[in-house]
């Protein structure tokens, strides 16, 4: 109980107060201490990667055993061990097989996923932008002006570009700052709750 509950809470309290204080201390000793803390967190975090990969392997092996998504599971395991092996034993320089697979397989796959966004944005905008009421109509008109204004069409239509920039820099920025202020206050409140030990779900409920 002490190790799993009390000690973590004491640590969070002490480190929380120190972390908060460090923000107000510019002294190099404080900076050095902060750097040491960051290095510790990187080192501790590295151990979590092993746990994470173990979970990944366990899940796919279980899938294969149960005959569920066998093909995908095999692909995932082969990719995981294959790339790790290549990187470890055959190097990762420009001309290595690792780099070649990265550039010719990983890059297009990643770009494909990202490009799906264009399709989803189109489909979502088509379904969502309906002038149902005054607010929705305003949203619709604003969206059209911004889309056109910041595109190449805005290059020739200066008024459109100016209106779009005004929308982005004034009303849009104002609402964003409003949300950000709320977020900032929420972050402080949550941190206080964690430091005081009122909020404990982060250590498993």
């Amino acid at each position: 109980m002490f190790l799993s509950r009390t000690l973590p809470m004491i640590l969070v309290f002490v480190m929380g107060i120190i972390g908060f204080s460090l923000y107000f201390i510019p002294h190099p000793a404080a900076r050095q201490f902060e750097n040491t803390l960051s290095q510790w967190s990187i080192a501790i975090g590295s151990f979590a990667i092993f746990l994470a990969i173990t979970s990944l392997i366990r899940r796919y092996i279980n899938n294969i055993k149960r005959g569920k998504d066998v093909f995908y599971s095999i692909v995932a395991l082969v990719a995981l061990f294959g790339m790790a092996g290549l990187g470890l034993f055959a190097g990762i320089d420009e001309k290595s097989l690792f780099q070649k697979i990265f550039i010719n397989v990983n890059v297009p796959l990643d770009a494909t996923m990202f490009s799906l966004l264009a399709f989803y944005v189109t489909s979502a905008a088509y379904r969502a932008f309906r002038a149902r009421n005054v607010e929705a109509t305003l949203l619709l008109v604003t969206a059209v002006v911004v889309i056109l204004g910041i595109s190449t069409i805005g290059d020739t239509q200066v008024w459109l570009r100016k209106t779009a920039e005004w929308i982005m820099n004034v009303p849009n920025l104002a609402q964003k700052r409003g949300i950000l202020i709320g977020v900032g206050l929420g972050v402080i409140a949550t941190s206080v709750k964690i430091i005081l030990g009122i909020e404990r779900n982060w250590m498993g409920g």
Binding site: A125, Y126, R127, F129, L140, A143, V144, I147, L148, I153
Partner: peptide
Amino acid sequence: QIYLIILIIIGN
């Protein structure tokens, strides 16, 4: 972007 605006108009 133009295609998207046409779609929005059609939808409306």
